[in-house]
């Protein structure tokens, strides 16, 4: 199997060559496999957005290379094809919705691809169905909750039928319910539609639902692996300015108090199971 996205020794600096040069990426290697759900996490300014913007050609590498299905992102001729393969959802839904009607906004992407009207209609219907938004088809996004707006933004990307969707802190603006709705839908797209998901997030409770995770700091990848493997390295996680998931924190605390709780607990459900079996 070939990786969907392959990053080879990628570097990128803002204001390159000037006095305030900021080296956002310092030689990153990464492979994203088809069908996986990958979390990229790290503090603000760690370079995760800069990295993700290379995946669909919003930025082009200053050195090193990024290949999407073997197509080099540096070649401008590939940009259109790559944007079709890799969609992107941003943090603030208000700043990415173009239209004042939900279904017309979802049609914006497919329209840009130059598809025939009947096909656009089909895709919009499919995207609405997949995310259970049919009832919002005709309304204006300004009346929706932030969570619903974000789902509309995801539907807009989904209608372009990408193989991979990058979500750049999609839940940062949302209330707990919106966060849950968006996360559940992202997980469903990954499991049921087989769409590769790259989730940029600060929230460890979202990271635990991913297959793989990467921790970045100062433009470098510091840790990578399954969430279980990464969260086992507690000290390093805390040193990098991140938290453990709530369940893991609680499990550690209980263990220190002498309760017999096994290692490797990151999901709330796992902790609940353990606690129920305690005598």
């Amino acid at each position: 199997m070939n990786p969907l996205i392959e990053v080879i020794d990628l570097t990128y600096s803002y204001q390159a060559g000037s006095d305030d040069e900021f080296r956002a990426l310092k030689g990153v290697f990464l492979q994203v496999w088809p069908g996986e759900m990958l979390a990229i996490t790290g503090q603000n300014g760690s370079g995760k957005s800069t990295l993700a913007r290379h995946f669909n050609g919003l930025l082009t590498p200053q050195s090193g290379s990024v290949l999407v299905e073997g197509l080099s992102i540096a070649d401008k001729k590939n940009t259109a094809a790559i944007r079709k393969l890799v969609g992107m959802v941003f943090q603030n839904p208000d700043n990415q919705l173009v239209s004042s009607i939900v279904e017309e906004d979802i049609a914006f992407g497919p329209e840009n691809l130059g598809l025939p009207p009947a096909e656009i209609r089909k895709r919009v219907d499919w995207a609405l169905d997949t995310l259970n938004l049919q009832h919002l088809r005709k309304v204006s996004p300004s009346g929706l909750s932030e969570g619903q707006k974000q789902l509309v933004a995801i539907a807009g990307v989904l209608a372009m039928k990408p193989k991979c969707i990058i979500l750049d802190e999609p839940t940062a603006h949302l209330d707990p319910r919106g966060k849950r709705e968006v996360l559940e839908n992202i997980m469903r797209l990954n499991r049921e539609e087989g769409i590769t998901i790259i989730l940029l997030t600060h929230f460890m409770n979202e990271v635990v639902h991913c297959d793989q995770m990467v921790v970045m700091e100062q433009g470098e990848i510091k840790l990578r692996g399954t969430p279980y493997a990464v969260f086992r390295q507690k000290e390093i996680i805390l040193e990098l300015g991140l938290d453990l998931p709530i369940a893991a924190q609680l499990a550690t605390g209980l263990r220190q108090k002498g309760f017999k709780i096994p290692e490797d607990i990151i999901h709330t459900e796992e902790l609940v199971d353990c606690l129920c079996q305690l005598k």
């Binding site: 669909n56 919003l58 259109a80 944007r83 079709k84 969609g87 992107m88 941003f90 603030n92 208000d94 700043n95 990415q96 173009v98 279904e103 017309e104 049609a107 914006f108 992407g109 497919p110 329209e111 840009n112 691809l113 130059g114 598809l115 025939p116 009207p117 656009i120 209609r121 919009v124 807009g156 990307v157 372009m160």
Partner: peptide
């Protein structure tokens, strides 16, 4: 700031200007 974010989001959704665009509603 909003304008900048909107441009990036539109670009990410393959907007390259009016050329080659079709319409859902005819």
């Amino acid at each position: 700031k909003r304008a900048e974010e909107l441009i990036v989001a539109m670009e990410a959704r393959s907007y390259t200007g009016g050329k080659g665009r079709t319409k859902m509603k005819t």
